[in-house]
């Protein structure tokens, strides 16, 4: 199979496509595939021309840290849980990999996602004092807890922002991960609800066209639409 990768040496250089030949079993993940290409004395592209090792980020390699977020065959995905068998038939075909494009490139597939964290800081996404509402009925509390459990699993990987038709660069519209954090803060401390609601209205509700593609690519399967419904009710 062919592996076509969009590469870039540094933040200041031009990007270029490079294609590699690879022969790996179908159950190999894209993370292991990149490792496989990199683990060679002399790396060459498909024409035999010597080239350099592919830069990429990883940490947990099992879908819970969000490091290896990239775009694989045009779908924003985690490389460690995307498998070759689902990308090419019988080992024939091309796998196309490019970095997330909503963030500045550092090197090859490594991008700088600092803006995610800066924006959450700027918009004061913290609980202050934990005071969850105890007035709700038991069944409701159970449902809230289940949603909080799912939402708190957000990896801040940026896949939801990459796929979003409304998210540009995080200057105004802050995307699904922001909406979910808004929900977490206001559910943990209703006293901050009004303030968080304002941020939500400005940085999410005003810009979301509800394509909900964020939910399709979320590796944690976070039902962002439920966070939106809860935030809208609060507003």
């Amino acid at each position: 199979m062919k592996v076509k990768i969009l590469r870039q040496v540094s933040p200041f250089s031009e990007s270029y496509w490079e294609t590699f030949d690879a022969d790996v079993p179908g159950e190999t993940s894209v993370a292991a595939l990149i490792d496989h290409i990199n683990y060679n004395d002399d790396i060459t592209d498909e024409t035999g021309r010597p080239t350099t090792r592919i830069g990429w980020e990883c940490s947990c390699l099992q879908g819970v840290c969000g490091s290896c977020a990239m775009v694989i065959n045009e779908v924003p995905s985690l490389a460690c849980e995307t498998f070759v068998r689902d990308l090419v038939k019988d080992g024939n075909g091309t796998i196309t990999i490019r970095p997330l494009r909503k963030f500045p490139i550092v090197h090859d597939l490594v991008v700088d996602r600092s803006s995610i964290f800066e924006n959450l800081k700027k918009t004061s996404m913290y609980v202050e004092e934990y005071r969850p509402s105890s007035k709700a009925k038991k069944a409701k509390q159970k449902e809230e807890l289940a949603h909080r459990y799912q939402t708190a699993k957000c990896l801040k990987c940026g896949l939801c922002l990459e796929v979003c038709p409304n998210y540009v660069n995080g200057e105004r519209f802050l995307g699904a991960l922001f909406a979910n954090d808004c929900y977490l803060v206001s559910s943990r401390n209703p006293e901050r609800s009004a303030e968080v609601g304002k941020q939500y209205a400005e940085h999410f509700a005003a810009g979301c066209s509800k394509s909900l593609s964020c939910m399709d690519v979320c590796p944690m399967k976070i039902p962002t639409i439920a966070s939106m419904a809860k935030m809208n009710r609060k507003a």
């Binding site: 980020e57 940490s59 947990c60 099992q62 819970v64 840290c65 969000g66 996602r113 964290f117 801040k156």
Partner: peptide, 10 residues
Amino acid sequence: FPSERSQSVL
């Protein structure tokens, strides 16, 4: 890296 990438999440 940010804390979300730390080994603690495992």
